[in-house]
């Protein structure tokens, strides 16, 4: 049997796959946050960053495909293991104490699948810019930053999060991601065997700190927008649009 078959066929091996894919996804989540936090800088920072990514499609697409493939592997392994785990106890106990098992550890599949559903929505919302799912009436595809010629991501983000239900959904998803990673990051070290009794308390603490920092970091964006961040920029571009659409002298209704 070759190495991959041996890995995929064993329960420990499947956890290696989950841990490695989870680790790369975690790196992405950290990097993505760092990029996104530029929303709190003047608008041209985020838009230049976005234009930089958009103009390097030969880099962006391989990265996207690898991330997607890893997410699929992560989910397939999670679901297959869950099926085996459920089959391992056909009759359940009449009375059962979860014991030391934390809530996060018991709800990994659920939190994970809900993150998966969020990822689909998020990609439709801001990547594929499907107008029907942003509920603002604005077509994000038409928001172009004249300075870069690429999408005006700053305006898009502010418009997007101005809708309370959309922001609330993002906050919920980030809460679940926090829960997932509070256990997942520890589990990752354990599954790869990179842990011993000296490091494990440290890893447990670091996992929680990382999860909470990610939650606060990501949440700050919709919360910031709901508190009014970026509205002045929207007014500015709306007036510009109005000027080009309605030449001087005509009334704006």
């Amino acid at each position: 049997m070759n190495l991959w078959t041996q890995v995929w066929r064993s329960s420990l091996g499947k956890k290696y796959v989950m841990a490695v894919s989870g680790f790369v996804l975690l790196l992405f989540v950290v990097g993505h946050l760092a990029g996104n936090l530029q929303i709190f800088l003047p608008p041209h920072y985020l838009n230049h960053y976005a234009a930089f990514l958009q103009s390097n499609l030969e880099v962006i697409w391989p990265v996207r495909l690898v991330l997607l493939a890893l997410l699929v592997l992560h989910i397939v392994a999670a679901v297959q293991l869950e099926v085996e785990n459920k089959a391992a106890r056909p009759t359940s106990y009449a009375q059962k104490e979860p014991g030391a098992a934390s809530f996060a550890s018991r709800s990994m599949l659920l939190s994970g699948l809900m993150i998966g559903a969020f990822v689909v929505y998020h990609l439709l919302h801001y990547t594929a810019v499907v107008q029907a799912v942003n509920f603002t009436g604005v077509d994000f595809a038409k928001l172009v930053d004249p300075a870069t010629g690429h999408r005006d991501v700053y305006a898009m983000t502010v418009y997007g999060f101005s809708k309370l239900p959309v922001s609330a959904f993002y906050l919920l998803a980030m809460g679940l991601l926090c829960l997932h990673l509070s256990h997942g990051t520890q589990s990752m070290f354990q599954s790869l065997g990179w842990k011993n009794s000296y490091y494990s308390p440290l890893i447990a603490k670091a996992a929680w700190v990382l999860a909470v920092v990610l939650f606060l970091g990501y949440s700050s964006i919709p919360v910031g927008v709901l508190l009014g961040h970026g509205q002045d920029y929207l007014k500015q571009i709306e007036s510009k649009v109005a000027v080009t659409q309605f030449p001087a002298g005509k009334e704006i209704k």
Partner: peptide, 17 residues
């Protein structure tokens, strides 16, 4: 590990129970 998997036990999800 192979014998463990064949016997039909589940996988570890690090709950610590």
């Amino acid at each position: 590990v192979r014998a463990m998997d064949e016997a039909g036990f589940g996988a570890c999800t690090v709950t610590g129970a």
